[in-house]
């Protein structure tokens, strides 16, 4: 038997670590209901700052902008990421495969300032050479977010693709199914949970990005993190606490759904 002493030390660390992860967020949520303007003084429960938040036109339009960009980026990233995952897991011998796999894993760790700067220079060069994009804005942010979100989708989807039983696909192909039809009829339903959770992951990543969006966005497209950042730079504000609470709750909900979907498919697979 393995003795239990180091295990109990690691259990204590696990609990402390989780407290470390969650306490700051709990503090933020609690203080969003503070009546006082000062963050350090508790002056009773109030939902005053939530009212202020919903009257702030700048924040509301930034929320709408961010949601739109996140929706389009996540959708495109799922398409590109799934194609990449296919190449990684299925095409073992193909020229250019190594280059593709480098290009898809590098954005996972690339410092955001580098990605942001490089994409901006590309858009400026493109505007000079081919005359597009005339103004930077939603479209350029969409391209930038799609590119880095695809990497995350590729990781999530390829983890699932590796475990797919290929005999069904082979049977379909042997019976004369075209590769595309095989994909849509056989493979897609099996990897759908991974696609959904990849989409949700990409959605939250896009919604959260500040640095890349700051580089490639123009005056017409201010995203929510950009508004939050310029306000937060001035110091702590109760209105941002209220906004933060709503963001934490919304994203936790999305993340929970994604996790639940993955888990359900996992359980189903184990049962069958």
């Amino acid at each position: 038997m393995v003795r239990s002493r180091p295990v109990s030390f690691s259990k204590v660390m696990l609990i402390l670590g989780l407290l470390f992860l969650y306490l700051p967020m709990v503090v933020l949520i609690v203080y969003s209901f503070n009546a006082s303007r000062l963050v350090s003084v508790w002056a009773g429960f109030s939902t005053h700052w939530y009212g202020e938040l919903f009257r702030d036109q700048q924040i509301l339009s930034a929320v709408w902008m961010s949601l739109q960009i996140a929706f389009y980026s996540a959708s495109m990233a799922v398409c590109l990421g799934t194609l990449c995952a296919f190449v990684m897991t299925r095409f073992k011998r193909l020229r250019g495969r190594t280059l593709l796999s480098s290009m898809i894993t590098a954005p996972l760790v690339m410092p955001e300032v580098i990605t942001g700067l490089s994409l901006l220079l590309l858009f400026v060069q493109m505007a000079q050479t081919i005359g597009w994009p005339v103004d930077r804005g939603m479209a350029t942010v969409w391209i930038a977010h799609t590119t880095f979100c695809s990497a995350y989708v590729a990781v999530v989807v390829s983890a699932r693709l590796k475990e797919v039983d290929r005999s069904m696909e082979e049977a379909a192909m042997d019976l004369g199914c075209t590769p595309w039809k095989t994909f849509f009829v056989i493979t897609l339903p099996v990897i759908l949970p991974a696609l959904v959770s990849g989409w949700l992951l990409a959605f939250t990543l896009s919604l959260d990005d500040l640095v890349i969006a700051s580089f490639v966005s123009g005056p017409g497209a201010t995203t929510l993190p950009m508004v939050v950042f310029s306000s937060v730079r001035m110091g702590v504000s109760p209105k941002i606490n209220a906004l933060a609470t709503l963001i934490i709750l919304a994203v936790s909900l999305i993340a929970f759904i994604a996790w639940y979907l993955m888990r359900r498919s996992e359980v189903k697979r184990r049962e069958s």
Partner: peptide
């Protein structure tokens, strides 16, 4: 998965 910016702000 929740906002990076918000967690630093906390």
């Amino acid at each position: 998965w929740t906002s990076f910016l918000i967690r630093v702000y906390a």
